[in-house]
Design a protein around this nucleic acid. Structure first.
Lengths: 233, 233
DNA sequence: ACCAAACTTTAGGCAAGCAGAATTCTGCGG
DNA sequence: CCGCAGAATTCTGCTTGCCTAAAGTTTGGT
């Protein structure tokens, strides 16, 4: 009965852990205990304990001193939470007038409380959106998720024309600042210049001649973009 | 610091207790331990323990072996939960196509997770409704609530013309059955007859000549109505 | 290869909530 | 006005989830 598979008797805490681990794994390497502790703002020993439980439940694999990796089952549960979070964020923004900088906190609580049915009704009411307000892809009901290779603005070559595709939803202040620059997912621009030594990048917003913005290195790192194809034919 | 007033550090459990106690108090008498235990489906000793905590927090007054009564502060907190519950129910029904028999369970979870801001946004989107889908009055933000004297269908005199105003949201099956009879809050009807010995009541739906329904005593007791004023002038 | 820093685990505790058993109180009937 | 049934309370103990402190393991620099 303490075995894997079976029912979803996931506590709120477990849901948080799975989501955090999933997001940490996106960097390619296994999620380390200390990283998980940092993401969830709990002490490292608490993570060790929970990792043991989740490992015994078959939701992840744990290689001591190396890190953890979600199993297929764990990943599925994590993606279910990611879907919930992003659907809720999109719904609150689209239907209830929330700003994109204030939805994260609300979604963080609601994702644990809503039923699968409510999520699907929200998704339906939104026309099954593919991206949340921050440009993050929304996993499908079956757990599939779009994987795209975005380049941070800090890495885009000067001269390139690109489109902002995705930003992190975690920091409301940063989101407000990004919005104040006229940037949001879908906006395209040209990289006009960049100072060396991790200096700021200058961009020109498309369709707004003379509308230039200077963006510091750290912020530029967090703006994920896609180079725009040149006009074809 | 363990005193009354101060911040709302109400746990989910405390919120449930306050709401249950508020509803039990509606019958006039103080809420008894066993009644609270029954309403929340917990054991009596659990209630005793929680009552002690809530009493020490100034949310209710406890007369040992007699029962509890919410303080002004406790009542306010309870009404806040009732508002949340009913706003959520109304929103889900109106905006997301839920049936009135399935909203209760979802609202029961969401009422603990939504922020005050989300509740007010939902209320706004609904045009600040005064009643939920079951006809129950929605407390205002300041904690005021409409008090109406309804009469159960079982107590309405034969010959009376009345309007169904309110039904309990607790039992989905009963709600589905009520709906199948063509009844919902706002529907008016005439009491055509009633059998003695707690027998069934026969009603005729207004505007539907020949549309008669026979309603058992227990069900009739749960249908709260208001006698309709005769045409004036 | 060794040692220190970083990381992980173990051990021991705390708090919230709940339940079962044992005890105490209330109120009613004789 | 005594005693008993039923209700309420207290006591004890379980579970979840988190913490700190201390002990153990690994890694990397030299």
């Amino acid at each position: 009965m303490t075995e894997a598979s079976s029912q979803q008797v996931l506590t709120r805490s477990i849901e948080d852990y799975l989501k955090a681990i999933y997001e940490l794994e996106q960097d390619g390497s296994p999620a380390q205990t200390s990283a998980i502790a940092g993401a969830l703002d709990v002490a490292a020993p608490s993570v060790s304990g929970m990792v043991k439980r989740l490992s015994e439940a078959g939701l992840l694999q744990h290689v001591p001193y190396r890190g953890v990796q979600l199993t297929k089952e764990g990943k599925h549960a994590a993606l279910r939470m990611v879907r919930r979070h992003r659907i809720v964020e999109t719904y609150l923004t689209t239907k209830l007038g929330y700003d994109w900088d204030s939805v994260h906190e609300e979604a963080e609580r609601l994702e644990h409380a809503v039923s699968d049915e409510l999520i699907e009704r929200m998704a339906m009411a939104l026309g099954n959106p593919r991206y949340d307000p921050h440009g993050a892809p929304i996993p499908a009901k079956d757990g599939s998720i779009e994987t795209a290779e975005y380049i941070s603005l800090a890495d885009l070559p000067v001269g390139e024309v690109a489109e902002l595709r995705m930003v992190s939803d975690k920091d409301p202040e940063r989101l407000r600042f990004i919005a104040s620059l006229g940037l949001r997912p879908g906006v395209s621009f040209e990289v006009l210049g960049r100072q060396p030594f991790r200096g700021p990048t200058t961009i020109g917003l498309s369709g707004l001649p003379g509308k230039e913005q200077v963006i510091g290195y750290e912020l530029a790192e967090s703006l994920l973009c896609l180079a725009v194809e040149k006009e074809v034919g």
